[in-house]
Design a protein around this nucleic acid. Structure first.
Lengths: 196, 196
DNA sequence: GCATGCAACTAACAGCTGTTCGTTTGTATA
DNA sequence: TATACAAACGAACAGCTGTTAGTTGCATGC
């Protein structure tokens, strides 16, 4: 009987979610089977259900962990006294860092959330929309302050949020520049182009 | 016996590929079943196999159609006498336009190509890498010409190619600015930020 | 009117899917 | 040593998967 190795600071469920994250990123949610996951964890498929309720619960766990992290950081940045352009920069930097440190989670949430079912699906979808509107709001304020060039704010949001997904390719590339260099390059390209 | 409606200028296979494109974009390749596809086409699942060889062939068709379009346009732009920064702009504009006119195809290729199997998988993967290197090459030439700011060229490529994926959200959003406006905004933000 | 062939059908396949069941095992506590 | 409980197991489920086989219907060319 192979036991699930639960690291010193993690329940067995967390071990499963971690493995699922890796697997979903690699194969996609639909293509990754519970038997694949069980093998990755070192256990029979049926045994997983002592720790989780369903396959979808794993996806929920991943998606909302990511969503919460971004929402929380956004609260923090919005409450800061920074200039709007600096707020946008801070959000961009956080996205970049999340893509460095937890990219599998972030990618899975971004790519697979459509496989959630209601009410989680609409919940996630709404949060996503709201998050984008928040950022667009900050940008619009920056535009009326003349900090930011007169551009369409929702377009900027689209560009920024999707651009950071490119970091996935960086993870798999061979000639990697350093994370710090990549961050500075991205900020340079995307934020400098915004300044009024 | 419901017959597949083949439009005046299209084989029945093309009708199937079109429907598959829509379905794969909506549900993902794995989650979209051949019975779903058959229903969309108005026929029984088995009947599809009079026109196609396999489910994967449909994905191949989509992926390589997209890849060819981009490679071809890239040839054309590279052969033009434009300044490097203008070449980059032209490529960006083409990507934007493709995302307007054929976004389902482009999105499916970008998102589902991993479900190809060899040799198509490695073929596609190689083409993808080569394409990015070509663009990075143009940018690097622009940098040594002092047309373009001194930035990491592969990073610019990542940003550009992923940023345009944001247009998918535009397609589904309600308050749409016009395609031309969106294109000009994107070019403004991403190309202006590059100029030396 | 008859043959040809395309393209549709129904039925079935073997294999995989997520999940449940009842049972057994191992470990910690008393 | 006995008890209790968490967590593993193998077997099985009903349903879906892509795909094949064999058959039937319809339009076309002779």
């Amino acid at each position: 009987m192979a036991k699930i190795k639960s690291k010193t600071n993690g329940t067995k469920k967390e071990v499963i979610v971690d493995a699922a994250t890796r697997l979903f990123r690699e194969k996609g949610f639909k293509a990754a089977s519970m038997r694949d996951l069980a093998e990755a964890v070192g256990v029979e498929a049926a045994s997983l259900y002592n720790h989780i309720q369903s396959k979808e619960e794993l996806l929920q766990e991943i998606c909302f962990k990511v969503a919460n992290a971004f929402n929380q950081k956004c609260d923090e940045i919005e409450a800061s006294g920074l200039a709007n352009i600096r707020k946008v920069e801070a959000i961009l930097r956080f996205h970049i860092q999340q893509m460095f440190n937890h990219y599998e989670m972030v990618i899975v949430a971004d790519r697979e959330w459509r496989h959630l079912s209601d009410p989680y699906l609409s919940n996630y979808h709404n949060q996503r929309r709201a998050y984008r509107k928040r950022i667009a709001g900050i940008i619009e304020e920056g535009i009326s302050n003349k900090e930011i060039k007169d551009v369409d704010a929702p377009t900027v949001v689209l560009i920024m949020l999707h651009a950071v997904n490119g970091i996935e390719s960086w993870h798999r590339s061979k000639e990697k520049i350093s994370p710090k260099q990549l961050e500075e390059n991205m900020v340079l390209i995307m934020i400098e182009g915004l300044k009024a």
